[in-house]
Amino acid sequence: MGLGLLSNTLVLLGKELRTELRSRELLTTTVIFILLVMVLFSFTFDPSSSEARRFGAGLLWLAFLFAASLMLQPCFLREQTNDTLSALRLAVSDPFAILLAKLAANTLFLLATELLMLPVFAVLYNVPVFPVFGQLLLVFFLGSLGVSVAGTALSAISAQARMRELLLPLLLLPLLTPVLVASTQVTAGLLDVQPFVQWKGVGFLAVFDLVFLTALWLFGEYLLEE
């Protein structure tokens, strides 16, 4: 069972990556969206280096969260087009593989766009990020994983309702409050003049990820029911 889950997940992850890399629809739109938020945000405050250190972390994470709530839309809608979700449910031994592959793919996509936008942020707002790149990568990973776990679950829910495009952000964003608070806090520490790692925040993000992964593992198969 465990081996079947792992191999099914890898096969499905391969499929997700292959389809996305072929069209690059999600990655392109998400990158452009984040870029847009970054540029527009500069008009709402004086974008000097010291101000950016104060607001930068929040700006980054808010942009990531909103971008994610858009990026996660097609996750299950795509599977509805030809009812491929049913084909997957018939084929896999454990339906959790479907969710696991999706959330892994979403985490990777999100992380990729975040890393792509990080140098742009550093240049636009004049905040050095290279010295703390490793630590930032850790926060980005834990935060994106949390966003993807909750987001994948809720995108499976919203895909089955009316007004789904509007619904997903409304369901997802309040649920992600803890991720926003903790990641912003840790990132702000890293962007400080004297960078420091808030391990409490890092640990909190790990706990959030673990709690939601467990919930998804327990209740995930019901999400895919018809």
Binding site: I157, Q160, A161, L171, L175, A215
Partner: peptide, 11 residues
């Protein structure tokens, strides 16, 4: 679906 969302919301 609402039950599942309710579970995620409460945890």
């Amino acid at each position: 679906l609402s039950a599942l969302f309710g579970i995620f919301a409460f945890i």
